[in-house]
Design a protein around this nucleic acid. Structure first.
Lengths: 241, 241
DNA sequence: ATTGGTGATTCGTGATCACACATTCAGATT
DNA sequence: AATCTGAATGTGTGATCACGAATCACCAAT
């Protein structure tokens, strides 16, 4: 046993086996579903319901749900159970301003810290996202978008602020199924991404911050327009099957 | 039962009785302790240990600890159990920049939204904090400082971003026992608070943001200086009882 | 004296159970 | 016809137990 820790016994290179707990697996699965907008806003989750769905007892689910609630990804529902937060214009506005402030700040920091190697790595992420966008692969574009921003912020901060940023990303999850199928927005968005990438290559922090502001601002505008359209549609035929 | 919900029965104004769960009480107590720096950074907490300390089974403690871990107030410790995050200069720097960006943004928003009534209410909070600062009441000043910032942000955002801000406040908790006893810093800090308050009264958002930047920046500088002093002291006599 | 193995102890994880409470709907009462 | 009452159902909360894993203390052997 001690041999595994000493390391002076020149063993062949072994990977360390992941020690995932069951509650963690449930959490990751739920988190993924929320972040990609696979839950309907307002949908409620029950302990026993989720437990049956994932095939475990209620115990790991309890841990996963309290964690998601603590992160604000789930809120108290009507009566019993937890609820995927409903979408409101007010929250969207707040998320927009907060994310621009925070992520803009981090991107600015990253601009002065990225090495040439970091930039070529980022180039690959950018190219992959660009290819998917041109091919009309919406889901792939969303994944690439996530990776692109993530790769930038990783150089502007460490775990603490990264956790905060990821938390905000999780909170726009419920809005995300509104923007997903929009190809026009995606093409538009790639321009902002190019602006960000060029700024980082020049080491121009302020331009990078401005690019982030443009990117997140455009996305929020797009979501807001679709939300308003939906509300207008609901006004016309308020009750329908 | 239905009567309580209908509300059309003109009952006398009754407060709704808080439905606190046991896990929530444990959480609140631990959170309070962390935010005010009553735990030593690096200290580890065990399920059974906390359960015995608060006089409950391990069950509510489990919920409270996973929640605190989700919020980043506790991290995985060495071996078993959770740990109060240790203090590092890197984290302090990140927290500083992130808080300035986020809280500055929210204060700017608040400047254009506060009514005269809001401002007179804020005046009272300010005066109370000022009185405590002059009297040398350190603990009272810290409470007042918290209330002052909180009162401002309440007008610049709602729950979502407020939760994020409170989360960042909780994360500087472990650093806080370093700044607490410093009277010189407190007097210095009140100047920044006055600058913030005046800016809000003029509706000058940019000046309010600058005031926040000054306030948080000064506090971070102060903590950093003390951290460096401590490290230097530990260098001289690394092992001692 | 240092290393390596062994046992006891402690801890987190997850399962199962008991309990309190909220919601719903059916039937009785006014 | 409207309202109250009651049981049935489903839910979160908390206690207790079982199991596996990790840490520590102790002892033996080199």
């Amino acid at each position: 046993m001690a041999a595994a820790r000493s390391g002076s016994q020149d063993l062949p290179a072994l990977e360390l086996v992941p020690r995932e707990t069951m509650a963690e697996r449930v959490y990751i699965q739920l988190r993924e579903a929320i972040m990609t907008g696979r839950f309907a806003p307002g949908q409620t989750l029950t302990l026993r319901g989720v437990a049956e769905a994932v095939g475990s007892s209620t115990m790991p689910v309890r841990g996963a749900l309290t964690r998601l609630q603590a992160e604000g990804a789930l809120v108290d529902g009507p009566g019993r159970g937890l609820m995927v937060p409903p979408m409101t214009l007010e929250i969207l506005d707040e998320l927009r301003d907060g994310r621009i402030a925070l992520e803009g700040c981090i991107a600015k920091r990253a601009a002065t810290r990225m090495t040439k190697a970091d930039l070529t790595a980022l180039q690959r992420v950018f190219d992959r996202m660009d290819a998917r966008a041109r091919a009309g692969d919406v889901a792939g574009y969303l994944r690439g978008n996530f990776e692109f921003h993530q790769a930038i912020y990783a150089h502007g901060c460490s775990e603490v602020m990264m956790g905060t940023i990821q938390n905000l990303w999780m909170r726009i999850g419920p809005f995300l199924n509104l923007v997903a199928p929009d190809l026009a927005h995606i093409a538009h968005s790639m321009e902002a991404h190019k602006q960000i990438f060029d700024a980082l290559r020049r080491g121009d922090g302020e331009a990078a911050r401005a690019g982030i502001e443009r990117d997140l601002g455009d996305a929020a505008d797009d979501i807001k327009a679709r939300l308003l359209n939906r509300e207008a549609a609901n006004m016309e035929q308020p009750e329908t099957a």
